[in-house]
Nucleic acid binder design. Structure first.
Length: 478
RNA sequence: CGGCGUGUGGCUCAGUUUGGUAGAGCGCUACGUUCGGGACGUAGAGGCCGCAGGUUCAAAUCCUGUCACGCCGACCA
């Protein structure tokens, strides 16, 4: 093999994680940059991942009674301003529309950064009686936030997401929905994306603008930084009061309803990249891989090779898998590297030698392991292998996360860990925002969440030493 | 919004210090030989040097301005 040709390199993640990420995004052909800063083209390979996420998440939503709707992308300024905390949270990063054609608008409108206000405006007209409740709506759309610094999938000025907005007669029902959706997200991440997450509640400092309580799932990336991967908010009746939404209850009294919202975004794709990827490129969990198996024919000009490849393709497609034959005139080595960069979970190699022996070679993307298998019954073999890959990927991600999760019971220990390592640190907290601020200033570390699974690992706050109230996961975040 | 950096064929970049009329590798096209970890030969196509001014006999190169993008911070899914 001559190595004169320079292979397009992916920077090693050990050398420069940020550059590695950018390289993988580009080499896996997920996106392209555009002439609008912070807005990207989702190329077929990238968009197909989103479609698979969308499809499978939407099915799970609907199984819990969610219905999809679509609301406008513009919000009049007066509407945005109705809830004080909310507008303060979002005003610094909204994009404004000031003209319609050549005429200045009477009132400027922002492009939605999130749709709470629109849903409230809508529910105000929709909800009058307890019989109108609950409404459990969701919309798939894009939103715009004028971010200063942008990164593909992790932070773009326009991003795709889903936002669920529900409205209920009682606070209990709203809380139940809030938690239910968070659990759904967590389960989705583990079962579909093979990403283990920590479920918990955000501190007041970190909660959503206008929310009474924000719950979050936090995932840990390969470099030890945390990524907020989905949130679920309980608004109490705060928005209802601000927007004057009322309903007549069974007892014939006027009441304010209770609301929730919950969302996940294309950031999940960033999480997949940074949890599973390696120095050869993307590694996709089979359940969200647009192509689950690629068949690479060897000596494809030779009679019978392409036919054999096609036969395998058909057997796999009949079994319901997403499969491609790479019959381009590149060399096999090229095709291998290409399939690896794109993260295709399984590669099937089939050449004259194999055909003669009635076999094919299966290569796993996640481990690199190659095995031989009989062409006869190959679909069953691949099915089992994809299943195993999906499970192994979750297991490995969990192990790595656990290895990067530390415990600190004193300030010295806490600071020592963060000065040497990056990861989650479990430590007790007194509940005072001043401690969060101090920690953030000193270490650029924020409270990621107060996990549902609480434990009392010490009596004292890791920062001030006062009486501890909560166990908190701390970390550096994206 | 602050700091840093980069704009030259499709891509990555050299050329800018010292001004002289545009180069390489990859990719692309055609044909042929190859094919089990990024194969090779031959022949080709392709560039308003981000944009606008200025200096000069002459500007990719010097000056001024401007735009865009990338990275790092502060804020955020």
């Amino acid at each position: 093999m001559g190595d004169k040709k320079q292979v397009e390199q992916i920077t090693s993640m050990e050398v420069d994680f940020a550059q590695w990420y950018t390289d993988v995004v580009k080499k896996a052909d997920l996106i392209d940059y555009t002439s609008v800063k912070g807005c990207m083209v989702f190329k077929p390979a990238g968009y197909a991942i989103w479609e698979l996420i969308q499809k499978q998440m939407d099915e799970r939503f609907k199984a819990t009674g969610v219905e999809n709707v679509y609301l406008p992308m513009f919000i009049p300024e007066s509407l945005l301003e109705k809830e004080k905390d909310h507008v303060e949270g979002f005003a610094p990063e909204v994009a404004w529309v000031t003209h319609g054609g050549l005429q200045p608008l009477q009132e400027r409108m922002c492009v939605r950064p999130t749709s709470e206000t629109l849903f409230c405006d809508f529910y105000k007209n929709e909800v009058h009686s307890y019989r109108d409740l609950p409404k459990v709506y969701n919309q798939w759309c894009s939103v715009v936030r004028w971010e200063k610094e942008t990164r593909p999938f992790l932070r773009s000025r326009e991003f795709l997401w889903q936002e669920g907005h529900t409205i209920h007669a009682t606070a209990e029902e709203a809380e139940e929905r809030t938690i239910r959706m968070l659990n759904l997200y967590a389960q989705f991440c583990e079962e579909i994306l093979a990403i283990p997450v920590i479920k918990g509640r955000k501190t007041d400092k970190e909660k959503f603008a206008g929310a009474e309580a924000t719950y979050t799932i936090e995932a840990l990336m390969h470099d030890g930084k945390a990524l907020q991967s989905g949130t679920s908010h309980n608004f109490g009746d705060g928005f209802a009061r601000a927007f004057d939404i009322q309903f007549t209850d069974k007892d014939n009294t006027l009441k304010y309803p209770f609301q929730t919202s919950w969302g996940t975004t294309t950031r999940l794709i960033g999480a997949i990249i940074m949890v599973h990827g390696d120095d050869n490129g993307l590694v996709l969990p089979p359940k969200v891989a647009p192509t689950q198996a690629v068949i690479v024919p060897i000596r494809q000009q030779q009679e019978g090779v392409l036919e054999a490849a096609e036969g395998i393709r058909k057997a796999l497609v009949d079994k319901g898998f997403r499969v491609k034959v790479d019959d381009t005139d590149k060399s096999p080595g090229w095709k291998f590297a290409e399939a690896e960069m794109r993260g295709i979970p399984v590669r099937v190699e089939i050449g004259p030698k194999d055909i003669e022996a009635g076999k094919a070679v299966l290569a796993r993307r996640d481990t690199g392991e190659k095995t031989e298998c009989a062409i006869d019954g190959i679909a069953d073999t691949v099915e089992k292998l994809l299943d195993k890959i999906q499970k192994d990927m979750l297991e490995r991600a969990r192990q790595r996360r656990d290895l990067q999760t530390y415990t600190a019971t004193s300030k010295e220990e806490f600071e020592k860990i963060f000065s040497e390592k990056t990861g989650f640190v479990r430590a007790m907290w007194c509940g005072d925002e001043a401690c969060e601020n101090e920690i953030k200033e000193k270490l650029s570390v924020t409270s990621r969440c107060m996990p549902f699974e609480q434990e009392k690992i010490s009596d004292k706050c890791v920062c001030c030493g006062k009486e501890a109230k909560k166990l908190v996961y701390w970390g550096k975040a994206y």
